[in-house]
């Protein structure tokens, strides 16, 4: 579904990520793990079309989308939820969800399935997005992304700003989402959380992918254990 090859991207001529090769198959959940500053957000921005790659290619379902602007990538079925969420704060939850379906009108069925995953949003429909708690805002961001019925959902640090319990809940919701057929690409620095949802994971270090494997393989890897799990 998504194929990234020898991708390089960065800011002001400085490469932040370089030589990235990764693939996501339909229905799969893939985690990108790495510490703060490893380049996870830069990589996601480049895939989503918010940042023009300096080299390499991004293919979506066999189509070259490398130089597409973000809105076109979104229309093609990639929903990117950045860590800062970028909700429409002054608008109601309902309008945020409606816009998630743009340019179509939201259909009942999708709305119902979103409420099934995030029941609290149903009670908050008329509330403005800024008035939601951090956890609810994160739910709304994912829900808004789901309203467009994306084929690939990219989540950047979904645990940002959430208490450990809420972060756990958020990832449980993602596990539930996996059952619905959506393909997931999640960047997360909290490795246990990331591995709890993923079928496969990549380790990103200093802008390069240094390891790839199943959650079990990564979990057992001494490097990963020392660097990210605080086990030596």
């Amino acid at each position: 579904m998504l194929e990234v090859s020898t991708l390089a991207a960065g800011y002001l001529g400085q490469k932040v990520v370089d030589g990235i090769d990764l693939a996501v198959r339909p229905g799969e959940a893939v985690a990108i793990i790495g510490s703060n500053g490893a380049g996870k957000t830069t990589l996601f921005r480049a895939i989503a079309g918010l940042l023009r790659p300096m080299a390499g290619r991004v293919m979506l379902d066999g189509r070259d989308v490398t130089r597409w602007p973000a809105q076109r990538v979104a229309q093609a079925g990639v929903a990117y939820v950045p860590a800062e969420r970028h909700l429409f704060g002054g608008m109601t939850v309902k309008t945020n969800l409606t816009l998630g379906a743009y340019p179509r009108r939201p259909d009942r069925e999708t709305l119902e399935s979103v409420f099934e995953i995030f029941p609290v949003l149903r009670e908050r429909l008329q509330q403005r997005a800024v008035t939601l708690s951090g956890g609810e805002q994160q739910m709304l961001a994912v829900a808004r992304a789901l309203m467009g019925r994306p084929r690939l959902l990219m989540l950047d640090e979904p645990s940002t700003g959430l208490a450990p319990k809420l972060a756990k809940d958020a990832f449980d919701a993602l596990v539930g989402l996996k059952g619905t057929g959506v393909t997931l690409l999640v960047a997360e620095q909290q490795v246990p959380l990331a591995l709890s949802v993923a079928d496969r994971g990549y380790v990103l270090e200093n802008g390069r992918i240094t390891m790839e494997g199943t959650p079990h393989e990564l979990d057992q890897n001494p490097e990963v254990r020392r660097a990210y799990l605080g086990v030596g």
């Binding site: 602007p69 809105q71 076109r72 929903a79 990117y80 608008m91 816009l99 998630g100 743009y102 340019p103």
Partner: peptide, 17 residues
């Protein structure tokens, strides 16, 4: 209105500013 509020958010849902 969404572009007025958050242009990046608007692009993420597929709206062309």
């Amino acid at each position: 209105r969404s572009v007025i509020q958050d242009e990046l958010g608007a692009r993420l849902v597929g709206i062309s500013p």
